[in-house]
């Protein structure tokens, strides 16, 4: 390992991925539940919207985010007024961008998990005096654990590998927005291949170990991932 290798981008990436995954699991749960249960006409529209980051070039998503989060943007302007800081080129801005970027990777496994659940035990729970919220936590959640594991792993690893969107809205500010993928790009640009090797290798090994862990678990308790 080169003596001057800066591991800060790795920690920043892990931090970003953790915060994003945690927030996404929280927000995506009601959204996925709604999508799995609604018969409303708007459902297809919302589903398409959620899936958009799957296929959209990250630079396109990043470009629009830059506009929205910028000091004159719909989100950026009020944020500037409230906090006296900008959203672009900050960690907070990156979190917001990552939430959108990784949304489908969390919503879809959850929605699949909810849709594949047998509805009868849920009705049984209602008939046993459990409120809808109560029955969600006591009956749905424990049975959708596989879906949650898939969602968390996909959301986390996908955020970890984020590059295009970060480049557009976060730039390359050490300790703030300089995540691992940006750092690797940077090292390659300056022909510092040794550092690039170390960071890329670390990311490769880490991601592989996570997936290996999930697939091993998958075998043992038949958790379905991917």
């Amino acid at each position: 390992m080169p003596a001057e290798l800066d591991l800060a981008p790795l920690w920043l990436s892990l931090q970003l991925a953790s915060v994003t995954t945690a927030l996404l699991l929280l927000f995506a749960t009601p959204l996925a539940w709604w999508l799995a249960n609604t018969r409303a006409r708007g459902r297809a529209f919302i589903e398409a919207l959620v899936a958009l980051p799957l296929v959209l070039p990250p630079t396109v998503l990043g470009f629009y985010l830059l506009l929205v989060l910028g000091p004159h943007g719909a989100l950026g302007a009020p944020w500037l007024q409230l906090t006296d800081t900008t959203l672009t080129f900050t960690f907070t801005g990156l979190v917001i961008a990552s939430l959108l970027y990784s949304l489908p990777f969390v919503v879809q496994p959850l929605q699949n998990a909810f849709e594949s659940l047998d509805r009868k035990p849920l009705e049984a729970a209602w008939c046993l005096r459990a409120s809808p919220l109560d029955s969600f936590f006591s009956v749905v959640l424990p049975q959708a654990m596989r879906g949650y594991l898939t969602a968390a792993v996909l959301g986390f690893t996908h955020t970890l590998g984020e590059f295009g969107v970060v480049l557009m809205v976060g730039g390359n500010i050490p300790g703030e927005t300089r995540v691992i993928s940006i750092a690797i790009y940077d090292h390659v640009e300056t022909l510092d291949y040794a550092s690039a090797h170390w960071l890329a290798g670390l990311l490769l090994v880490f991601t592989f170990v996570v997936l290996l862990g999930v697939y091993t678990l998958n075998r043992q308790v038949r958790v379905r991932v991917l």
């Binding site: 047998d118 009868k120 035990p121 009705e123 049984a124 729970a125 008939c127 046993l128 006591s138 009956v139 424990p142 049975q143």
Partner: peptide
């Protein structure tokens, strides 16, 4: 109280 055609026990 409701008893369904299938037992519908909570598997977990």
């Amino acid at each position: 109280g409701m008893v369904f055609q299938q037992p519908c026990l909570f598997p977990h």
